[in-house]
């Protein structure tokens, strides 16, 4: 800690300039809910801490024609309570209610959560299900990437050392599209033992499933899509039978490891149960 410098950035440009100069020696501090404990334990020892918490340009929730754009510094609590979110993407408000405690939600940010890339994070599977895109900015320009491609390994993302995550761009739900997020944790608002983000779009005439994304968190190094389970559902009418089969497929295609949260065998059980629950809830259209 004694060799660490600290800069409080006022603008995105200042952030990217700093990153350009210091690269992976620098670490971005947003809400501090993940990084500060690591600093405190001296497990993380960056040479420079760039505090972006005052960068006003990264705090917004805006509706465009087809999407909601959310600034990376938006706090979990804002996401939980914002009227635009509640109206258009209630899945996110639901997800936030299950994420840690109000105190943490008041400080922790959406961007911080994604960039910390805890494989048990709740935000990622929900955003993956929605097909969200991330805007990454560096001194030399900006690029866009889907959330699905963002995560590389435990706590590792595709973000380059000179980039900052600026914005999350989420497509609005189409008519007849439904998205939900459910999780299991031992004390209700704990680290997820499993989290499932689901998106289903049904055909108006045939009631068959046109599009489906089943995104599972906390079962591997990165949140993943249960593609074999999706294949069971895609193009079919969602019934008790297909749901049961999809649950089985998901259980087969995902190999969680045992840890303090639960054994691999227990997590396998949960995968089947939660894929089924997610499909049931999303296909019944209880939630838009």
């Amino acid at each position: 800690m004694k060799d660490m410098r600290y800069i409080r950035a006022a603008s995105v440009t200042e952030v990217t300039d700093c990153l350009k100069k210091y690269g992976d020696k620098a670490k971005i501090l947003a809400g501090g809910q993940s990084l500060v404990p690591l600093l405190r334990q001296r497990l993380a020892r960056p040479g420079l801490l760039i505090d972006i918490s005052r960068v006003a340009d990264l705090k917004f929730i805006r509706k465009t024609k087809n999407t909601l754009k959310i600034g990376a510094l938006t706090t979990h609590r804002q996401l939980e309570t914002d009227p635009l979110i509640r109206e258009h993407l209630p899945i996110l408000a639901d997800m936030e209610k299950q994420l840690a405690s109000v105190q943490i939600r008041n400080l922790g940010t959406l961007g911080g959560n994604l960039c910390h890339a805890d494989p048990a994070g709740d935000v990622a599977p929900a955003l993956m299900a929605l097909g969200a895109k991330l805007k990454l900015i560096s001194a030399t320009g900006a690029r866009t990437m889907s959330v699905e491609n963002f995560f590389k390994d435990f706590f590792e993302t595709a973000i380059r050392p000179d980039e900052v995550l600026a914005e999350i761009d989420i497509p609005l739900l189409p008519d007849l599209g439904h998205a939900i997020y459910i999780k299991h944790s031992s004390r209700g608002v704990d680290t997820a033992i499993i989290g499932v983000g689901t998106f289903i779009l049904k055909d108006h005439d045939t009631d068959t499933c046109k599009e489906i994304r089943l995104c599972v968190g906390a079962v591997g190094p990165v949140p993943i899509r249960a593609k074999n389970a999706e294949a069971v559902i895609r193009g079919k009418v969602v019934t008790g039978k297909t749901i049961a089969e999809a649950g089985k497929k998901a259980r087969e295609e995902i190999s969680p490891v045992s840890d303090l949260q639960g054994s691999a065998e227990y997590k396998k059980e949960l995968i089947e149960v939660f894929i089924q629950r997610a499909l049931k809830a999303a296909s019944s259209g209880r939630r838009k």
Binding site: Q41, R42, L43, V257, L260
Partner: peptide, 17 residues
């Protein structure tokens, strides 16, 4: 040590990997 104290969950998985 600290590394284990803090991230048992992660280190188990990482070691396997």
């Amino acid at each position: 040590g600290k590394i284990a104290t803090f991230g048992e969950r992660i280190f188990r998985a990482k070691a396997k990997e």
